[in-house]
């Protein structure tokens, strides 16, 4: 049973950032803009917020510092994604172009800035992790569930779940969500009934930027104590989770947890007696999530349908 608790707690560290970023990608793609820049935006958000933590940590620590960092990560991501929004929406450019550009600019400038700002020109940004919650009061004492979710956790885990709830609600139960989906399916029709397609798409991209920026921070905090201008391909994985999740919140949740579980097994299998005894090398475990995804997709994708207008620049003149 201890192994199960350990697995679930670890799984959150991998699943939650994937969930947050993939939900972000969902808002962008459902509005009709492919956002391949998730990786770069994650790096940007993680960089500014971790840098802030490393600068402020001598004076403050714990949850307050983390909350400030979260705000910074969100703002950074939102601002950085405006570059993508402008190129994709106003300039009607190929959406992979600006996405690729952002993916190149973010890590390179993170290294550049880190080496400029920090003494001795060090490129890693060090921070002390003071954010782990041993046990949430009251909730941590609930049998089973308490140990699964409310011990040895981070506040970001709960934020992830809250974002999931809000995202699902906004997408399906609000006027904005309906308009967003309309712009991703048939922007001309949406425009003809008076929806401002440009505005909605801007909103979609900026939400995705905010969530991706946050996801960058959420990924780095529990898994490392320094930031080295990379989120190890998590932005691309989130893109895979998004497509695997069929652009739908609940399925994205499932896909994120599937990936997270596989990742956890790959990184922590030596701590689980049953898996250790099998004697399978770690590289194989690391391959498993990707192979499993491919197989799952092969069987489920026949009827898969991306938002119809995603990736297509909206041209008012074509209405």
């Amino acid at each position: 049973m201890d192994a199960v608790y350990f697995l679930v707690q670890q799984m959150m560290f991998f699943s939650i950032p994937l969930l947050i970023v993939a939900l972000g990608g969902m808002f962008s793609e459902r509005s009709g803009v492919v956002n391949i820049a998730l990786e770069g935006i994650m790096v940007a958000g993680a960089f500014t917020s971790i840098l802030l933590i490393s600068l402020l940590q001598s004076g403050m620590s714990g949850q307050i510092l983390l909350l400030i960092a979260i705000a910074v990560a969100i703002v950074t991501g939102a601002l950085f994604s405006l570059l993508h929004a402008y190129a994709a929406i106003n300039l009607r450019s190929d959406q992979t172009i600006s996405g690729t550009a952002l993916n190149m600019i973010a890590p390179a400038s993170a290294i550049y800035l880190a080496r400029m700002i920090q003494p001795n020109g060090v490129q890693q940004v060090q921070f002390t992790n003071t954010f782990r919650i041993e046990k949430v009061p009251f909730l941590g004492d609930i049998p089973i569930l308490g140990r699964l979710l409310f011990q040895n956790a981070y506040i970001t885990t709960y934020i992830g779940f809250i974002i999931f709830g809000i995202a699902a609600f906004v997408l399906y139960r609000t006027r904005f969500g309906l308009r967003l989906r309309a712009c991703g399916e048939h922007p001309q029709a949406a425009d003809s009934v008076g929806i401002n397609v440009y505005k909605i798409r801007y909103a979609g991209v900026v939400i995705s930027g905010a969530l991706a920026g946050l996801g960058g921070l959420v990924y780095v905090i529990p898994t490392s104590t320094n930031f080295n201008a990379t989120v190890s391909g998590y932005g691309f994985l989130a893109l895979a989770v998004l497509i695997f999740g069929q652009w739908k919140p609940l399925r994205i949740l499932g896909a994120a947890f599937f990936f997270g579980l596989m990742k956890t097994i790959a990184s922590a299998y030596s701590g689980i007696p049953f898996l250790r005894d099998l004697g399978i090398p770690s590289d194989i475990y690391k391959m498993v999530p990707f192979i499993a995804t491919l197989i799952a997709l092969a069987f489920t994708s026949k009827r898969s349908q991306a938002p119809r207008a995603s990736g297509v620049p909206y041209d008012k003149g074509l209405r």
Partner: peptide, 8 residues
């Protein structure tokens, strides 16, 4: 199989 090339 209609799997998106980016994810594969």
């Amino acid at each position: 199989l209609n799997v998106h090339e980016v994810i594969t």
